[in-house]
Simulated scan of single mutants.
Amino acid sequence: MNFSTSPVVSLRDVVIYQDVNTILSNVNFDIEKGEFVYLVGRTGSGKSSLLKTLYADLPLQTGIGSVSEFRLSKLPRAKVPFLRRKIGIIFQDFQLLFDRTVAENLSFVLKATGWKDKSKIKQRISEVLMRVGLDAAANKMPHQLSGGEQQRIVIARALLNEPVILFADEPTGNLDPMVADGIMQLFLEINNSGTAILMATHNYEIINRYPNRVLKCEHGKVLDSRVESFSLTNGF
């Protein structure tokens, strides 16, 4: 068991780029184990680019950063899969494989991250589907599920390797309010069990209903509600 007390995410003097353009500069924050943090900002403010840098989809070129004790600067491509095994990524557009069953989608990820024992793979799939309330969906095709159910499968997929943190990019953006609230309740249950969450959202109602620390991308900076006060209005 890992008893390390270091933050799950730590950024110091980081610059976030999209292609050659500077999107965010002088980014400094930590996320501790088990913390729930919202990431907000208007469209184009840098939220997705920041998340992509944290899960090593974009390179960290300036500053010092670490996620789950992996140094992001000059992280070799060969090391990225090892980082990804420590984190969970939840996309707004699901990115499920629509020619495979739910179980086959989840099995694909487990095999890609080094699982080989078929009985253990089957057991882990059953565990995560039960966790998200869809244990009866293993043999269904994604198109047979509602949008909310598909998002629960995406969350189950992100939980497969027991990540220390979930990075969620607008996970309720395509869902109606009642379904979005159910997804939020699921995130809170996951967080209460010890998994840190960084959730990018435009959903002002969810932040109001379930207040937590907020990081706000604005004018090329990342503001932190833990160290400075700023206003949050609908639309940010």
Results as ranks from 00 to 15, higher is better:
223 L>C: 13
222 V>E: 05
230 F>S: 04
8 V>Q: 03
83 L>G: 03
19 D>Y: 03
219 H>N: 14
168 A>P: 12
202 H>M: 08
142 P>D: 05
132 V>F: 08
14 V>Y: 10
119 S>E: 15
108 F>R: 00
89 I>Y: 07
52 K>I: 03
111 K>G: 01
104 E>P: 00
38 Y>E: 05
39 L>G: 08
148 G>Q: 11
179 V>I: 15
176 D>F: 11
180 A>K: 11
162 E>H: 13
87 I>S: 03
88 G>C: 07
191 N>S: 11
3 F>N: 14
172 T>L: 06
80 V>C: 09
109 V>D: 04
226 R>D: 06
142 P>A: 08
106 L>S: 04
150 Q>C: 14
67 V>M: 11
206 I>N: 01
163 P>C: 06
52 K>F: 11
7 P>K: 04
136 A>K: 14
140 K>L: 14
218 E>W: 09
187 F>R: 09
160 L>N: 05
71 R>A: 10
123 Q>D: 15
126 S>A: 14
2 N>P: 06
146 S>F: 10
191 N>C: 10
166 L>Q: 10
92 Q>M: 06
227 V>G: 00
73 S>P: 00
33 K>Q: 13
46 G>T: 03
92 Q>R: 04
30 D>W: 02
144 Q>I: 01
148 G>D: 06
139 N>S: 12
41 G>N: 06
15 V>E: 13
23 I>C: 07
197 I>W: 07
147 G>C: 11
220 G>Y: 01
27 V>G: 10
3 F>W: 05
182 G>F: 00
4 S>H: 05
235 G>V: 08
129 L>M: 14
221 K>P: 00
120 K>V: 08
108 F>I: 00
180 A>D: 13
8 V>W: 03
64 I>G: 01
206 I>A: 12
99 D>G: 01
71 R>S: 12
156 A>V: 05
153 I>S: 04
66 S>N: 12
174 N>A: 14
55 Y>K: 09
53 T>A: 12
18 Q>W: 00
178 M>F: 07
140 K>M: 06
108 F>D: 02
233 T>H: 13
232 L>D: 02
222 V>L: 04
136 A>L: 07
69 E>N: 13
117 D>L: 09
103 A>N: 08
48 S>K: 01
70 F>K: 05
115 W>D: 08
133 G>L: 13
194 G>D: 10
89 I>W: 10
221 K>W: 01
166 L>S: 03
113 T>Q: 15
29 F>Y: 11
11 L>R: 09
42 R>Y: 05
6 S>N: 14
200 A>L: 05
148 G>M: 09
102 V>S: 01
101 T>Q: 00
12 R>S: 12
13 D>F: 11
233 T>F: 12
79 K>S: 14
157 R>Y: 02
146 S>L: 03
86 K>H: 11
40 V>E: 04
86 K>D: 03
34 G>P: 02
116 K>P: 01
20 V>L: 02
165 I>Y: 08
113 T>E: 10
143 H>G: 01
13 D>C: 04
122 K>C: 10
